[in-house]
């Protein structure tokens, strides 16, 4: 099947704008998701039982139902409780819900993977539980979260393709619109797939940089000890 390269170049600006929107929404959702995830994840670890259990229910619910169903719920439920947002912010909220659900587990797992002695030592020098979490456990857990969080960001980007069902003009939706206007299936689908691949590939690369260079204090301490 010969590809029409001229056509592919011609639609590139339109697809690129949609890609920017996809990345923006995903990134915002991931950021809000991290904030929510660290908050809820910490509560899940040190909070009282009557807070831990509802958080676990929420996480089970988000992980146990399809993202599309959650999008529909956000799409229908927000206006019902009086919050009327445009498509862009509805998309951000919907993706944030999903991202937060998975990130709570990531944060919890990372905090619980830190050696128990660290928490005990922190409590022994008189820190409160919250302070121990903030100053001792979270900074160490942060590094272990990075690979899982990158994974989650690529999941969020892939999930954002579903926002096309609630009329957000992201990459998949724009690609589809072009297909229906021109019937150039092959060219459009390839270009859309390649754009997704590039974004997700670049993310993996950035993440390993962060893991090795920026959040490497754990490693640095061990290195000093060895010397």
């Amino acid at each position: 099947m010969p590809l029409d390269l001229d056509f592919m170049i011609r639609i590139f600006p339109e697809l690129f704008r949609a890609l920017i929107l996809t990345v923006q929404i995903s990134f915002l959702a991931l950021l809000f998701g991290i904030v929510l995830g660290i908050l809820l994840g910490s509560l899940r670890v040190i909070g009282p039982r009557y807070i831990q259990i509802p958080i676990q229910w929420l996480v089970n619910y988000i992980r146990g139902t399809p993202q599309l169903v959650q999008f529909l719920i956000v799409y229908f439920a927000l206006p019902r409780i009086g919050i009327v947002l445009n498509e862009y912010w509805t998309g951000v909220v919907a993706l944030t819900v999903i991202a937060a659900g998975y990130e709570v587990e990531i944060v919890r797992a990372a905090i619980e993977s830190i050696d128990k002695g660290q928490k005990e030592a922190a409590l022994a020098v008189g820190m409160s539980e919250v302070k121990a979490l903030r100053l001792v456990l979270l900074p160490q857990a942060m590094r272990r979260m990075i690979p899982a969080l990158t994974n989650e960001l690529s999941n969020v980007i892939k999930a954002s393709a579903l926002l096309s069902v609630i009329a957000v003009n992201e990459l998949t939706k724009v690609g589809n619109k072009i297909i229906y206007e021109t019937f150039y299936f092959f060219e459009v689908l390839i270009e859309v797939a390649v754009l997704y691949l590039i974004v997700i590939g670049v993310l993996g690369w950035i993440s390993s940089y962060f893991e090795n260079k920026v959040f490497a204090y754990g490693e640095a301490i061990t290195a000093t000890e060895v010397r």
């Binding site: 393709a161 690609g175 297909i179 797939a193």
Partner: peptide, 9 residues
């Protein structure tokens, strides 16, 4: 690296 929605389309 690509969304399942794109693969389905």
């Amino acid at each position: 690296g690509t969304p399942v929605a794109v693969q389905i389309y």
